[in-house]
Nucleic acid binder design. Structure first.
Lengths: 227, 227
DNA sequence: CGTGCGATTGACTATGTTCAACCGAGGTGG
DNA sequence: CCACCTCGGTTGAACATAGTCAATCGCACG
């Protein structure tokens, strides 16, 4: 099996209602500024969340001060479903004006008890979170900075373009996060991320417009960036 | 917050019934030999599974031939809940005589529709899988072989001793997996894993009895193995 | 228009991988 | 029953790759 398909998530299953449809009656949406925290580590887990627009990072800070980004949360992603008591990680908005919907956990669970359809919905989004984390582990598991950065770009292209993004044809994708975020996501130094990107650019695999917009030219070249 | 608590899972919540209690009526248990496959990559996801005894590895083989172990599955762990259609990874038994319970997915889901308690159970075990994967990402995210191997040992001590294991007092833990498995789990070479272990042994942080039995002497020393 | 942060590039260093040899326990077959 | 073979594990030396330190660039925002 080819790596590209490993990194590709399950196609979202068609529902009679969209995921979150039933839940949406409970939703409280909030707007966050750049870098603003949505919840902190060890915060009581009173809600489930879903990114409506913008982007967020889930992370933890190690004892040595290094920040480890556990995953990026993009429009459509649910998060915070894992915790029973307190959130294990903090979540911050990445871009200005990120909109997040919050669902009171207890009420959602109670609703799910009475409504099997909602129960299935929750299992679906939870399964999606598991799939996301597993592909994440695959990316982290790659050795070599080129492979990691390539896999990261493919993941983002996949996740961003399947969402709204409205990426008009050949404009590529617009990364919502900084090089530092990417570095903390891939467990690399910023310098290495930067070098990997210039390397990919120089060999014609990608094109960079400004610093945040990336157009993938040769998918194969990225997928083959093992080691 | 100290790293040790980050790597520690949520304490298993008390249930009136044990997790899997309702499910157990559907269970089919099977016995597997050392290295025997439980399911392959791309196999239709017709069942959920739970490890009863023994141990298993979930993994994928990259294009370059490297084997990446996504996670280890120990007694009590549910797995295979993520997939809606096909399993993204293969699973193999690690030790001779591993017992695995299989639950037909469709029937379990149907049962969950009618039984809210089962629905909550499923959400609980799924949340546990998410927590496991997230701590996994933290371990992978550590830089430096000492930190990774230390975190691995702490994770195993935690997961194994909370299960049956019957680790009589000072006997330490019995690792079910080989050095090669550990290497593919941590994305290190076997040699580096071996060196890290001898290093930890020499500085008195752990004691090795034979090659598989590990006794952790100084938890602090392991936890502080940053970098 | 200036300031500051994010990004890039370079030189040196540290850390892990690779290649290779060796060891030891367990299992098999003569 | 013992020799041998294989596989898992450890150790050593040379090499490769990413991290660190440092300087510079440039874009965005005030």
């Amino acid at each position: 099996m080819h790596v590209s398909s490993q990194l590709r998530h399950d196609q979202p299953t068609r529902h009679r209602h969209n995921p979150g449809d039933v839940l949406s009656s409970l939703a409280m949406t909030t707007r966050y500024g750049r870098g603003q925290e949505i919840y902190t580590q060890d915060h009581p887990a009173e809600h489930w969340y879903r990114v409506v627009s913008g982007a967020a990072r889930r992370f933890t800070v190690q004892v040595n001060g290094r920040r480890q980004i556990v995953d990026f949360l993009l429009p459509g992603d649910f998060f915070g479903l894992a915790s029973r008591n307190v959130h294990l990680f903090a979540v911050e908005a990445i871009v200005e004006g990120t909109i997040v919907a919050a669902y009171p956990r207890e009420r959602a669970e109670a609703l799910a008890d009475a409504n099997p359809h909602l129960g299935r919905e929750i299992r679906t989004v939870t399964a999606a979170e598991i799939a996301r984390l597993q592909t994440r582990i695959l990316i982290l598991g790659r050795i070599g900075s080129l492979g990691k950065v390539s896999a990261f770009l493919l993941e983002m292209a996949e996740r961003l373009s399947s969402r709204t993004q409205a990426s008009k044809a050949g404009e590529g994708i617009l990364l919502p996060m900084s090089r530092y975020d990417i570095a903390d996501y891939l467990t690399l130094s910023v310098e290495t991320v930067s070098r990997a990107l210039t390397s990919l650019k120089q060999r014609g695999a990608i094109r960079l417009v400004g610093t945040r917009r990336v157009k993938i030219i040769h998918y194969d070249a990225l997928e083959d960036s093992d080691e």
